[in-house]
Nucleic acid binder design. Structure first.
Lengths: 234, 234
DNA sequence: AACGGTGGACTAGTATGCAAGCGTGCCGCC
DNA sequence: GGCGGCACGCTTGCATACTAGTCCACCGTT
C-alpha cells in the first residue's frame, strides 16, 4: 500500500502538504486501493505519506465531509462502505446539478468549447481502444467538467465531485466492462450533438439518460463484492 | 465581538470542540457579525473561543471550502467579500438542487409532512408579526430543509447550506425589509399548495420564482454596503 | 473450565512548539 | 527630502507532545 500512495502523492506538487495528502487519499479511496470497511489510522497514514499527523487529520476531516471515511472518536477512522442510499443521493445531486448546467450550456456554449468537447471524445476513443481504464476515467471526468464549465457555473462540477465519492467508486468498479465504454462514448457524442443544436430539452434528456447508465452497473458489482457494501437494514 | 461568539458557542454543545467552533464561526460570518473583508487570525479566534489553534484551524479549512473565508499562507485569513459571481453560483446550485428535490417531493410527500410544512408557515407568520428576524430566518431554513427531506434526499439541503454562504449573507442583509417577509410567507403557502396537489411542474415553477426573490434584494444591498462586495473587474 | 476484572496498547482530540514567508515600519544613505 | 534596504513582528504551515477514552487480551478467581 505505501508505494502506491507515495506515487500518487508525488504526482501533485500543488497545494502544499495538506492538498497533496487529500488528493492522494481521495485517489486511493475512489480507486479502491483503500477498500471499503478497512480501518485507517492517522499514525499509519502519516508514516506512509512521510508527513505528520496534522495534515493527515485535516485531509480526513474533508474526506468525512465527502462521506468517504467515517471518523469514530477514540476508536478509529474507517473507509466508508458503499451505501445504496449514499449512491442514490450522489446520483440525485449529480443529475440535478449537471442537468441544470447543461440547460444553461445549451444556450451559451461557444464553438470553441464544442470543439474541445469533441476532442475529448476522440481521446476517449483512443483510451478505449488502448484499454487504458485510468485514462478513460480521467477523460470522462474532464468531459463532464468541461460541460459544467460551459454553463458558466464551474462550481457545479466541484460540488458534483465532492458529493460523488460513493458513486465514483461504483464507476471505477464497473468500468472494466468494455462495452460500457463504447456506449458511454456514443452517449457523449449525442450530448455534444444536442448542445451543438442549442437544444436544452434534448441535451438534458440525453445527459440524464447517460448519467443513469452508471446505476445499471450497480447490482452486478454488489453481487460480486458484497463486502464492499453497507448492509441494508431489513 | 468576543461575547457574541461565546454565546453562539455555548448554544451548541454537540459535536465536540471542532463542531462548536465551526458552527460559531459560521453563524458569525453568515449573520455578518464578522464583516466581509475583515482580517481574522487563528490566534485571536482561538483566544476568543477559549480553545487552541488546532480546532480553529480545522474549522477555517472547512469554511474555506464553503467560500466564506480566504486563507492566504503566511499572510492571514480574511472574511470573503461577497462576490456577485459567488452569489450567482450559489443561486444556481440552490435552484438546481431544491427544484429537483421538490419535483420528487411532489410525488411522494405525505399528509403528515404537508401538515408540518403548514405548521412551519404559521410559525413564520408569528415571527413576522413579532418582528423577530432571527427566528424568521431559522424558520425559513427549516421550511426549505423540510422540503428537501420530503424528497427523500436530505443531502440536498446539506449541500445547499454549505454552498450558500454568500447567498445567505445577502439574505440576512435583505431580511429587514418587512414586506419581503410577508411575500415570502405567501410564496411558501403557494409551494405547499402545489405540493398538496401533487403537481411537480407547478411546485417547481413556484419554488423557482420564490428562490429568485432573494436576488431582487441584491442591488439595494450592494448600493448600501459597497464595502462588503468584491470589486468587479471592469 | 468459565467468568470477571484489570492493565496495556491502541485510538482520535487537543494543545503547544518550531519553521518559513510575507508585510511593514524604521533607519541609514544618497 | 526621497529612496533603498534591513530587521522585526506578524501570519499560517507543519511537527510533536500530551490527554482522555475505547478495545482487547491476559490473568486471577470461582
Amino acid at each position: 500500500m505505501p508505494p502506491e500512495l507515495k506515487i500518487a502523492l508525488a504526482d501533485r506538487a500543488r497545494g502544499g502538504t495538506r492538498g497533496r495528502v487529500y488528493s492522494a487519499l481521495r485517489d486511493a479511496l475512489v480507486a479502491g486501493r483503500l477498500e471499503p470497511g478497512r480501518r485507517l489510522s492517522e499514525n499509519e497514514l502519516a508514516e506512509w505519506l512521510g508527513v505528520s499527523r496534522t495534515p493527515v487529520r485535516e485531509a480526513l476531516v474533508r474526506l468525512r465531509d465527502d462521506r468517504l471515511v467515517e471518523i469514530v472518536p477514540q476508536l478509529g477512522t474507517f473507509v466508508s462502505k458503499i451505501s445504496i442510499a449514499a449512491v442514490a443521493d450522489a446520483q440525485f445531486v449529480r443529475e440535478a446539478l449537471e442537468c441544470a448546467a447543461i440547460r444553461l450550456a445549451a444556450t451559451r456554449v461557444t464553438e470553441a468549447e464544442l470543439l474541445a468537447l469533441q476532442a475529448l471524445i476522440a481521446q476517449q476513443d483512443e483510451a478505449r481502444a488502448a484499454g487504458d481504464l485510468d485514462r478513460f476515467y480521467l477523460l470522462d471526468d474532464g468531459f463532464h467538467s468541461a460541460l459544467c464549465e460551459s454553463s458558466g457555473h464551474a462550481i457545479a462540477w466541484t460540488l458534483v465531485q465532492r458529493a460523488d465519492g460513493h458513486l465514483n467508486r461504483v464507476r471505477r468498479l464497473s468500468l472494466p466492462v468494455p462495452e460500457y465504454m463504447a456506449e458511454m462514448i456514443d452517449e457523449h457524442r449525442s450530448v455534444v450533438a444536442a448542445l451543438a443544436e442549442r437544444d436544452p430539452d434534448s441535451a438534458e434528456a440525453v445527459l440524464r439518460h447517460h448519467l443513469r447508465m452508471v446505476l445499471s452497473g450497480l447490482q452486478p458489482i454488489q453481487a460480486e463484492h458484497p463486502e464492499y457494501f453497507e448492509q441494508q437494514p431489513a
